[in-house]
């Protein structure tokens, strides 16, 4: 009985996630006319790439997608470069101001971007970074850092310091001990932080809209053109926004399973 309820719950959650994805994929791969038909068929009866081609063909979409990928990957790299050492320091060392530091990290997420937008735009205008992907990358890195730092520090806490000490006793330098012993074990968690960061950057629209005019990321581009676009464009845009995040998660899945699964393979 309990088992049954559990399975029912799993199915419900799966449907909750999968049905919208299915519907949007269905709409994105239907012809323009079939979208206006009523009732809409729930099975892919007339498969067509017309809608998605139309979307990809519209002005600014492909450059915006490239921008999004660039910003996403740069944000991941930058956030990891800064966040992983910070997470390690939080996990391993007791230092003055450690608690306030952790709290402060979270506080950066407490300010809405709308509030920050004017000063941010001003700073980027003054520094000449306005309307570049760098500006968006910097903003996204700032937004992603708290989660990166907190996730990686939780991961490093899970690797006992005794393992690092053991590595050093047996002849490893502190750096070698970190690379050979800590990193391999922290990789799943770091991958999770990377996924989180990439998806966050890919989906972030407000900051990207404010800081760019011509160098839009995909969500900003779609948002800018959404109000005066046909229905088909919206479905295709939605699909294009969802897919890369799903692909990225699928690639990182192996590491995520390692983190949450019971065994290391």
């Amino acid at each position: 009985m309990k088992r049954l309820a559990l399975q029912a719950g799993c199915i419900a959650i799966t449907l909750f996630m999968a049905v919208p994805l299915y519907l949007i994929a269905l709409a994105a791969f239907s012809s323009r006319e079939s979208l206006n038909r009523f009732p809409l068929p729930l099975l892919p009866t007339d498969f067509s790439t017309e809608t998605i081609q139309g979307f990809l063909g519209s002005t600014g979409v492909v450059p915006a997608a490239i921008n999004s990928v660039m910003v996403g990957l740069s944000t991941v790299i930058l956030a990891l470069l800064i966040g992983v050492p910070a997470g390690y320091a939080l996990a391993r060392y007791a230092f003055r101001g450690k608690q306030p530091y952790q709290l402060f990290l979270l506080l950066t997420r407490a300010l809405p971007i709308v509030v920050l937008s004017v000063p941010l735009a001003r700073i980027f205008l003054a520094s000449g970074l306005y309307d570049t992907t760098y500006a968006v990358t910097l903003l996204h890195t700032a937004l992603a850092l708290p989660t990166t730092v907190l996730i990686t520090s939780a991961v490093f806490v899970a690797v006992s310091p005794e393992q690092e000490e053991a590595a050093q006793i047996f002849g490893a330098s502190p750096l070698t001990a970190f690379v050979r012993v800590v990193m391999p074990q922290a990789l799943p968690g770091i991958a999770a932080a990377a996924v989180f960061t990439f998806v966050m950057s890919w989906n972030e629209v407000l900051g990207a809209s404010i800081l760019t005019l011509n160098q839009r990321t995909l969500p900003a581009q779609v948002l800018a053109t959404l109000s005066f676009s046909p229905l088909a464009y919206r479905f295709a845009g939605g699909f294009a926004l969802v897919v890369p995040a799903l692909v990225f998660i699928a690639i990182m899945r192996k590491y995520l399973l390692n983190m949450w699964g019971t065994t290391l393979r």
């Binding site: 006992s160 005794e162 393992q163 053991a166 590595a167 050093q168 006793i169 047996f170 012993v181 074990q185």
Partner: peptide, 20 residues
């Protein structure tokens, strides 16, 4: 002298063997 240059060997309470 740092631990790695002392040429000692050690068994830890938590074993501290490398799970990966």
């Amino acid at each position: 002298v740092s631990a790695r240059d002392r040429r000692v060997s050690m068994v830890f309470q938590s074993y501290a063997i490398f799970p990966h």
